[in-house]
Design a protein around this nucleic acid. Sequence first.
DNA 1: GCGCATCGCTTAATCGTTTTCGTATTATCA
DNA 2: TGATAATACGAAAACGATTAAGCGATGCGC
Lengths: 356, 356
Amino acid sequence: MVSMKDISAVCGVSVATVSKALNDQSDIGKETKRRIRQAAEEMGYFPNTAAKMLKTNRSYNVGVLFNHEDYSGLTHDYYAFVLDSLKRTVEEKGYDITFINTYKARTGRTSYLEHCRSRGFDGIAIVCTDFYSPEILQLVMGGIPTVTLDHLFNNVCAVMSNNVKGMEDLLTYVYNKGHRKVAYIHGADSAVTQSRLASFYRTAGQLGLSIPDEYIRMSPYRDTKSAYRETMWLLNLKEPPTCILYPDDFSAFGGYNAIQARGLRVPDDISVAGYDGIRIARHIEPTLTTLRQDTAELGRRVGEKLINLIEHPKTTLIETIVVEGHVFEGNSVADIHEGAEDTAAKRRKHVGTDSI
Amino acid sequence: MVSMKDISAVCGVSVATVSKALNDQSDIGKETKRRIRQAAEEMGYFPNTAAKMLKTNRSYNVGVLFNHEDYSGLTHDYYAFVLDSLKRTVEEKGYDITFINTYKARTGRTSYLEHCRSRGFDGIAIVCTDFYSPEILQLVMGGIPTVTLDHLFNNVCAVMSNNVKGMEDLLTYVYNKGHRKVAYIHGADSAVTQSRLASFYRTAGQLGLSIPDEYIRMSPYRDTKSAYRETMWLLNLKEPPTCILYPDDFSAFGGYNAIQARGLRVPDDISVAGYDGIRIARHIEPTLTTLRQDTAELGRRVGEKLINLIEHPKTTLIETIVVEGHVFEGNSVADIHEGAEDTAAKRRKHVGTDSI
DNA sequence: GCGCATCGCTTAATCGTTTTCGTATTATCA
DNA sequence: TGATAATACGAAAACGATTAAGCGATGCGC
């Protein structure tokens, strides 16, 4: 490990001079600077981050919180894509990403905040966790620049996918396709679920849709089995819906299965829409119509905001950034307008009809 | 940020004593140790990792290389699950995970190795990257304890999914279901592809299967469009296969689509098998029969090996660890034994038959 | 020629730890 | 009692960088 001292010895200058030359400070002669930089290059010098950190209190490292009880968000398409984009964004600016955790084999369990302070993270991004745990509250109050994803704390920057607009767009899309009997299987209770559900009701009202209570069901996120059951329940109604909205794309596939098991077809017999826009949804037939959240943009905005907070703490606004999604039009929602030569009919003609 | 100096002042001892007390060294009085630890607790002390690192040359931080040109492995189910497991494993032992990258906004681009040395990683896991780049070679030769996933370097520990056994099991499974005309769409050239392909040929030979050249096709990993085309090509053969093996599960779904577009059904008309065992494959009907790789075990073994290398460099074997997968039996492969009351027939009866 | 900036570099302190070596105190034993 | 050993603690150097302050040399205006 060649250090500045080694370079200073070789070049016959002091370490201070080396430091300044390498950091491109102004009070070093041109020629000296060149000599030093060349020597550093030749000797294979690279700065010791720990020493730099100790001295400057800057780590150029941001912590990312990404824990869930049972599974880490890594295995969740939505979060993984956001993280991927976040990673690119901060790396381009010279920051590294380290996962925040709570283990400490040698000293026993530590809190998230202690972990972050120990590591000297310049900032933290809270992407996926149980936002209601007191430890998280302690963390966001800890004074380290912080950005959260899809959750709002007082006085903390947040980047949120626009769930209100998203649900509005999705329901409106379905409405415009002629659907009047729309069921919504929503996810387990959370801030996100609340927004979507409220938006669903509001939009339904605006569109003049009347939604019977039995059309609103609950199924935990990403639980295909449960979505299957709820779908069956809806299909068994005296007056089943013509379209079902799901908490997420995974669940929508659970719906596909139930519908198929009943000998029905998507979208010919019943329409389905998901939420998220995970990759696979575009590769399975019938491709899923879903509200595609802009994960690339979400991650980018989290990263940019965080770095702004770090580098310009005074002038950076504490704000909530809202990122829009859009309806990805697959072919899981049929156009059922009166007499419409709809896709379902076209398909039926093409493939030949069977059951029902 | 309360430091040891603060504690020493409060307790009326030297910082050396504080350090020893906190590190549970033997040459400190019982009572003093208690006092110091209590004070540290009350004052909210936590060690400054940078200072510790500088002094001890240990970071308790491992670097993970996880880059691909176009997408990071994060968005890839297989790698994401491995990383998830790796993360748990090392965190339990008190290590953090930081992504290795190659940006350095302030000093220009750096090599992977420089980045690792700068950060002082105790070890590195190379999970997903272009193993043939010279920079990777430089990295693994850099003298930092290293474990690679699914790639073999000289004198470097590796954890490998058993592709030979995997393909053997999968093909044998398909054979046992009665299939004699088996096509294999393999992935783009790589060590992994080579193993699987070789194993495919060898196993076919052992089973007495003759595989016409036209049954062997190539399609890049996870490219559903390409898999679609290749599937079409196979279906257009004078004598199409009864079963198609795909490079991965994503591609298999591309196959599903082609088969469906032809008005055929999986598995009634043609059987399909994937590779990987990504989560969604178990939630789409017909559920995909696939070689499920044991991502949890793979990640765990990478983590354990790496920490052993770090903590016991002398006594830890440089070896290749092979992890077995297993055939996950979905219902995408039909039993086509002569006269078998197979699932396909059952399904046909149940659902009612249509086209073809 | 004198005062004063400017330039280019050095000295030395500092960040928060760890660790070696030394020393004062007490205990042990012949 | 005096020598020795064990115990408990402190002083100080070191890790590798940054940075404020200082200082000699040069150039410039008057």
